[in-house]
């Protein structure tokens, strides 16, 4: 039962990430398509956890196998799928993207819900994020587009993803090196609060065309993702008073990187958003020292 629940939540998390991404990029999200993806991913995660076990290695294997098997279904089902709707995932690069999303969901459950591995391999993940970040920052966009790894971003947006991942890698490296306290859960709620506050403000002000009747969910999800990432970084760095200034700098850089990927930003825009993060942290008393 525990394994079934674990698999269900992992699959739900992964599919939520997937659907949010497709909504954000205005690409095909079709109920049948999502249902098949959900079924395949759930079965892989559940059967592996039931017959082999739950762990980091099993997570990596499931994360790779699930999207690959779904890709095989997708290719084989060609004759009867409506290609005007199902134009995604033709490229093998998308399999890797889905694997990463699945692994994030699996890892999150493993570390923060089951609390199995005591030591999250920060150094290895720092290296991984650094390498992927550098890849997106320095690889020509035409190559990314050809291989399907451009994630529906434009040529000007793609380097910002690289910059964000590099910063995330750098942060993890610093957290590991100086053994800083990792306040993920309070940061998560702080992010939720900040996201609610921000979306509420945009809805009231009807600004930027960010929130409208059609895109309330996607814009909420986008802001949520941005702020969760910002929280993770800033709260980790805020565990020491002496590094508070650095955390502020990181939050601002992350905001610039993310908002540039979504829409034109300016210093005023960043200046208005940064205090929201710190206000929400203060409300939830995320440790400052």
């Amino acid at each position: 039962m525990k394994k079934a629940l674990f698999s269900l939540i992992v699959t739900f998390l992964m599919n939520s990430l997937d659907v949010i991404y497709h909504l954000l990029t205005h690409t095909a999200v079709h109920l049948n398509y999502v249902a098949v993806k959900f079924t395949v991913i759930f079965l892989v995660v559940y059967l592996v956890s039931r017959h082999v076990g739950i762990g980091l290695q099993e997570g990596i294997v499931s994360a790779l196998a699930g999207p690959m098997i779904f890709y095989m279904y997708y290719v084989a089902a060609t004759p009867t799928l409506d290609r005007t709707l199902f134009v995604l995932d033709e490229n093998v690069g998308y399999v890797l993207v889905h694997s990463a999303a699945l692994f994030i969901a699996y890892w999150f459950m493993l570390v923060h819900v089951l609390k199995e591995p005591a030591d999250f391999p920060k150094k290895q993940f720092a290296l991984l994020f650094g390498v992927i970040g550098a890849f997106y920052l320095f690889t020509p966009f035409t190559f990314l587009e050809q291989t399907g790894l451009h994630l529906e971003l434009t040529a000007s947006q793609s380097p910002f993803l690289g910059l964000f991942l590099l910063l995330l890698g750098l942060t993890l490296f610093i957290v590991d090196k100086y053994d800083l306290k990792y306040n993920l859960i309070p940061a998560f709620f702080a992010a939720l609060l900040a996201a609610l506050f921000e979306v509420g403000a945009h809805m009231l002000l009807r600004t930027l065309g960010l929130v409208n009747e059609l895109h309330v969910f996607s814009s909420f999800a986008y802001v949520f993702v941005i702020l969760v990432a910002t929280m993770i970084v800033s709260s980790a760095w805020l565990s020491s008073r002496t590094t508070a200034a650095l955390s502020l700098l990181t939050a601002v850089l992350l905001e610039i990187a993310f908002f540039n990927a979504a829409m034109p930003s300016n210093p005023l825009f960043v200046a208005l958003h940064t205090p929201i993060i710190y206000l929400s942290q203060a409300i939830l008393k995320v440790p400052y020292e």
């Binding site: 892989v44 059967l47 017959h51 076990g53 290695q57 294997v61 098997i69 779904f70 199995e116």
Partner: peptide, 22 residues
């Protein structure tokens, strides 16, 4: 066929990796 593939994959993984519990 996809379900068959999932069963085959998990069985192969179970054969090469000893089972561990939570």
């Amino acid at each position: 066929g996809t379900l068959g593939l999932i069963i085959a994959f998990v069985s192969a993984y179970a054969l090469i990796k000893p089972r561990k519990d939570l």
